[in-house]
């Protein structure tokens, strides 16, 4: 089987999420990559070095500069004559593009896979991860999004892919990119952080979140996450949200502070290796999944913890 993996990048470097997809794709067959963007020679060269990669298709055109699904999907379709499966990371861009491709190919997408059982059979979470379904597809071509935390990352070196330019399918004129506000942070990205410190509604306001959660994260070199309640209340930006409808994370250590542990939150972090919870309510559901729990007032505990580390 020949697979085509959509390479997520920021115009300069390949994003980590792509590496887990390469691993998933390699379980199906040969791995080819698609680098679409504007001025992406460096990205293509980097992608060609990923271990196990064959061809790297490069589509360099302004139409692909912002990964607009309306432009990228026809490009993917133009390459699917030669490929049997199209795979994307289950990131916001991946989720935006892949179903459009699936519809154009008249196939059912398999979302957020956790494992490859065979060429046509996969496991995936449903009901916020409260159930795991094993699904088999009848479609000849497969369109798949891959949960990044479920697969090892392919090595970023050792590969010797061959770079091949492909023709642009052009600007479709259906949508225009206006702008973006991407938060710049020195901290590790949530989806690749080894340690995550997460805060919930209990933090009460943005000042507390910054003065209590962040120093602890800094001490541990950790990424910072949040519950939906903390995001909705405006303590932190939306991309901090961990959960069913936020980011799915699985760090070595996840520290949940003042988070109750609603199923939608657990859906995003319960595959973390070690979960530590700090909550003043000893019956909070978060303690049912926590490896280490500390009952008490976070406003006392967390500064003391930061101090003693």
């Amino acid at each position: 089987m020949k697979t085509l993996v959509w390479v997520e990048h920021d115009g300069k470097v390949v994003k980590d999420a792509t590496l887990a997809v390469v691993t998933a794709a390699s379980k199906l067959g040969d791995v080819h990559l698609l680098v679409a963007g504007s001025g992406v020679d460096a990205v293509a060269a980097e992608a060609a070095k990923i271990a196990g990669v064959g061809k790297v298709h490069v589509a360099d055109d302004a139409a692909y500069a912002h990964a607009l699904a309306e432009n990228v999907a026809p490009l993917v379709v133009s390459l699917m004559g030669d490929h049997d499966a199209f795979l994307v990371p289950a990131t916001s861009n991946g989720k935006n593009i892949a179903p459009r491709v699936a519809a154009l190919l008249d196939v059912m997408q398999i979302s957020d896979i956790l494992s490859v059982e065979s060429e046509d059979t996969f496991t995936r979470p449903i009901y916020a991860g409260n159930a795991i379904a094993t699904v088999q597809t009848k479609d000849a071509k497969k369109v798949i999004s891959v949960r990044g935390t479920a697969f090892e990352k392919a090595a970023t070196s050792g590969g010797s892919g061959t770079i091949e330019a492909v023709a642009s399918t052009g600007e479709k004129g259906l949508s225009t990119y206006v702008g973006s506000e991407i938060a710049k942070s020195e901290r590790p990205e949530l989806t690749s952080a080894k340690i995550i410190v997460s805060g919930g509604r209990a933090l009460q306001n943005s000042e507390n979140f910054h003065s209590i959660i962040e120093p602890l994260a800094d001490k541990l070199g950790a990424g910072v996450g949040a519950s939906r309640a903390a995001v909705d209340a405006g303590y932190v930006p939306n991309d901090y949200q961990v959960g069913q409808t936020g980011k799915i994370v699985a760090p070595e250590v996840y520290i949940a502070i003042g988070i109750s542990g609603a199923i939608q939150h657990l859906a995003g972090m319960k595959d973390s290796k070690t979960i530590i919870a700090i909550n003043k309510d000893e019956d909070a559901p978060i303690f049912q999944v926590a490896d280490i729990g500390l009952v008490g007032d976070l406003f006392k505990i967390v500064p003391e913890l930061t101090e003693k580390l």
Binding site: G129, A133, Q136, I292, L294
Partner: peptide, 25 residues
């Protein structure tokens, strides 16, 4: 187009230990 072969519960996490204070943590 898809057939669900089976649906199972995810691996369960069990509650761990509670520590008494920050020093223990």
């Amino acid at each position: 187009r898809l057939t669900t072969l089976k649906v199972v519960e995810p691996a369960k996490r069990t509650a761990g230990v509670k520590v008494a204070d920050v020093d223990e943590l």
